[in-house]
Design a protein around this nucleic acid. Structure first.
Lengths: 351, 351
DNA sequence: TTGTATGCGTTATCAG
DNA sequence: CTGATAACGCATACAA
């Protein structure tokens, strides 16, 4: 019943050769005569022989598959990263095995154990927002498993990292808002345990300070669940709108926070940017079709997947020493559309 | 250097037992004494033993991983399907290995060979728009490989299928437009080789006919690349808008066609629905935030992934005979928003 | 140039 | 109850 594959043995038997001869012929070994090679190759072709990768894995102690853990596949950012990763891996003869943490530490660990027990040759991961204990990664890394962290990295673990210049992304976006006349800029931030959240927040603060504006704590709202729960964003927005000194602009420091913020503003009948300007990190589709189109900070997601995978494969294939930790930094792109253009009356009022 | 795992042998040596005893103890075999079992189990726990799944695969001739081929991972619909598939697979102890065809037959075949040579236990696939030759699937299926087709199915191959009631989805949406006073309804359709395109087109036609409206061929535009190329959509739209009898509404029969159509309309300064009503198949985010919000036909993508995977795993685990082909049908959801509401003047004009 | 034997980690079969 | 051995498919050191 089950998919009976042809093996090297079948070829050997049929051709009256030994399995080793066949094996060597197939691998084009120099110690096999041209005739025998041709004989074997032709026959293998004819009966559609394919080496069993599982047997190979067992022998070579490697599986030619890499694990990838993200918090959510159905997130446009991560799906774009996966896309980039898959394209590189595929070209180099590797499989990508996907796992989702769904922002849960427990699920992340389960996935991790599962993947490592599956003998992956390396791991690409963007940690969950819940993850505070990185001992397992350290242990794994010390055992020789190549690991590349991307996007959400881990500061106190020496590893390979691919990140985006989140500081600059947030800084530039904030400066952009300031230049357009906004003075009361609030920010929606992810859980502060996340490196990306800290970097973006730092960029936001620095931009304010460099432009002589005060950083006010009440203007900074953390959404611990990263906007997975709309409630969280709603509460944050309500709080901001209830302030005596209401913000006139918002920097949304994550994809889900950007769309969440848009939803809440819309639900409350507030217009962007007339009632509230908004610039956010976003890789979501259709942002340019909103009315007015939304300005966003876009991450090089596909490229992120490519770079991380390329680095990992170099580590796996020992083209690069595992212990010489490297950090690659990509840059975000600020896409300016209508939503953050100068508000004429405000700008006039300030002149 | 490389990740040295503990094996059953290590345990055997350390405890002065044979590998077979250890193996049996670990598998809780009845023929092992309680003491020995405890001894082995405790020690295995202590040194953190995990069975090598590759060795297991070689022995059991199965890999506990399933292949999944879609045309594009970074497509919200497919990423949602993958999400559903992953969640089911994960709970049942299976890996999902992803491949992308990018709408290319060649790439699809390469992926397919790659995955099967990787000893996947089963396959879930939504075929590429280019695929016309299904002999490879037939062959694979006859060799005993469980295959579940989803979404884009193959009519002339007897297989397991999970589909959406595309006919009804298109029918209902078209009827909805008709009820709201539109009489010149055009449609953007995918490549007609795709089952989903044919079904949707049939639903559109039936809705017109059932309501006494004429089906006009010039109102039906096929986009062979499924809207991957915006040019294609643009050409189609330009042609429609150049008609003597211009359409007053459009049924976009695929995700990319819906967003593509929106983009083109916007680029040409046409308003939805005042200048042109639009209802489309779409699982894209943010459609409800457009101004006015877009009415869409939403597919149960996550559920699609779940159902297909559940079916496949039943086949793999022989809980269901592979030869009793089954087709499961899910239903779409018509989400009515402003973009297809009655146009007052038009309706008045008709009364 | 080709063949034989061994091992990768595991389980199943057969002996004890 | 436990141990030795073969087998899964392949590659390779060693023999010939």
């Amino acid at each position: 019943m089950k998919f009976e594959a042809v093996t090297i043995k079948d070829i050997a038997r049929a051709l009256g050769l030994s399995t080793s001869t066949v094996s060597r012929a197939l691998r084009d070994s120099y110690e096999i005569s041209q005739e025998t090679k041709k004989l074997v190759l032709d026959y293998a072709q004819k009966i559609n022989y394919h080496p069993n990768p599982i047997a190979l894995s067992l022998k070579e102690r490697r599986s030619r598959s890499i694990g990838m853990i993200v918090c959510e596949i159905a997130n446009s950012y991560f799906s774009q990263v996966i896309n980039g990763a898959e394209s590189i891996a595929y070209n180099r003869g590797y499989n990508v095995i996907i796992g989702q943490s769904r922002e849960s530490f427990e699920r992340e660990m389960l996935n991790l154990q599962y993947l490592t027990s599956r003998s992956i040759d390396g791991l690409i991961i963007s940690v969950s927002a819940e993850t505070k204990d990185f001992s397992y990664f350290k242990e794994l890394s010390q055992k020789g498993m190549p690991i590349v962290f991307f996007d959400r990295i881990v500061d106190n673990v020496e590893t390979h990292k691919v990140i985006v210049d989140n500081y600059k992304g947030a800084y530039d976006a904030t400066v952009h808002l300031i230049r357009n006349g906004y003075r009361n800029i609030a920010t929606l931030s992810n859980a502060p345990v996340l490196s990306i959240a800290r970097d973006r927040l730092a960029g936001y603060k620095a931009a304010l300070q460099d432009n002589g504006l005060e950083v006010k704590e009440e203007m900074i709202r953390h959404c611990v669940h990263g906007g997975m729960l709309l409630d969280e964003v709603e509460t944050a927005m309500k709080d901001l709108l209830a302030l005596k000194n209401k913000p006139d602009a918002i920097l949304a420091a994550a994809d889900k926070l950007t769309t969440g913020c848009l939803r809440i503003l819309k639900a409350n009948g507030l217009k962007v940017p007339d009632d509230m300007a908004l610039v956010g990190f976003s890789n979501t589709d259709l942002t340019e079709l909103l009315d007015p189109p939304l300005s966003v900070i876009r991450q090089p997601a596909f490229e992120m997947g490519e770079v991380a995978t390329d680095l990992l494969l170099q580590l796996i294939e020992s083209k690069r020493p595992v212990t010489e930790f490297e950090t690659r930094v990509l840059t975000t792109e600020l896409i300016v559309r209508d939503s953050s253009k100068p508000i004429r009356n405000k700008v006039r009022a300030m002149v």
